[in-house]
């Protein structure tokens, strides 16, 4: 610890940066896309420049004005020059956001939290293969990262394997993007839990896509986003295939009310997920925390 003497030394006001972290910045909905029956993508522009600088995997606190605020990851890449959020209608605030129309105002605070670290630790293009595994709406926080990865393959980055699981074919988001990523060299595999007669693709758990995807687990990294159980299951399968747990990133979700580390709701053991997450390596500590029985 720092000694209590240090704890008791109050720094001078000048040493601290002032920040008004709780007031949203108004954005206007410039495009609204219905992705599935309950998932909507909003493209947002600030009423006044500048646009937000962010990294893929980070999140914003989105306000449906007068209703409340929720944490939603960005689903666009910074180089696309448009802030997009894909929202699943699961509660009062997300419902209000999904119902908003082009021209409506949305409050935005952010960006907050950690990112997918698309670039290598040295800050250049990562030459390892990247395995992206998404479940349901989990593809949204990964979408920007995939856009960056696809761009990077043209600059010498590793191969990209995109494995997507969904409840049923109609719940697969970003169909056009998936086609576009495929056209630009990514290997895309889809699977669903429940198939209708029109579906001629694969049926089964997303992990069944791992075995014949064709990546070299010992020289690749992974980015996982989806229900927590699905991420645990997938991470363990990747480790069994020989992947380094430090190279497996997961995006975690807890109740977030402030986004700035003050409200205490998003604790996961020693982590404050708004500050230390949402994207964390599935290494020793996180894997322990995620299997700890909480009920």
């Amino acid at each position: 610890m720092s000694s209590d003497r240090t704890l008791l030394m109050r720094p001078s006001p000048a040493a601290r940066e002032s920040l008004s972290a709780l007031t949203p910045i108004l954005h206007r909905v410039v495009e609204r896309i219905g992705e599935t029956n309950d998932i909507t993508t909003l493209a947002l522009e600030p009423l006044e420049p500048p646009s937000m600088n962010f990294r893929c995997g980070q999140f914003n606190m989105l306000s449906a004005l007068g209703v409340g605020e929720i944490a939603i990851s960005m689903s666009s890449a910074p180089h696309e020059r448009m802030l997009r959020h894909s929202i699943r209608d699961v509660g009062a605030v997300s419902h209000a956001l999904c119902q908003s129309s082009v021209g409506d105002l949305v409050g935005v605070r952010g960006p907050f939290g950690s990112d997918w670290r698309v670039e290598s630790a040295r800050g250049d293009v990562d030459q390892r293969d990247t395995v992206v595994v998404a479940g349901g709406i989990g593809l949204a926080p990964l979408r920007g990262a995939v856009e960056e990865l696809v761009r990077d393959t043209q600059r010498g980055g590793g191969r990209i394997f995109i494995l997507v699981g969904a409840r049923e074919p109609s719940q697969i988001v970003f169909r056009a993007d998936l086609e576009s990523w495929k056209a630009r060299g990514a290997k895309v595999s889809l699977t669903v839990d429940l198939a209708t007669s029109e579906w001629d693709g694969r049926v089964g758990l997303v992990t069944t896509l791992l075995a014949d995807a064709g990546f070299d687990a010992t020289n690749s990294r992974a980015m996982l986003c989806g229900p927590e159980v699905m991420m645990r299951f997938t991470a363990r399968a990747l480790i069994d295939l020989g992947m380094d747990p430090e190279g497996i990133l997961v995006s975690l979700e807890r109740n977030m009310q402030c986004g700035v580390g003050w409200c205490g709701h998003c604790q996961l053991g020693p982590l404050l997920l708004c500050r230390d997450g949402p994207v964390v390596p599935y290494a020793g500590l996180v894997s322990q925390l995620l299997t700890q029985r909480e009920r």
Binding site: G135, G136, A166, R167, D193, L205, G226, V229
Partner: peptide, 9 residues
């Protein structure tokens, strides 16, 4: 795992 209907509402 699929019986858990993880992606369900």
């Amino acid at each position: 795992m699929r019986l858990l209907d993880l992606y369900g509402d």
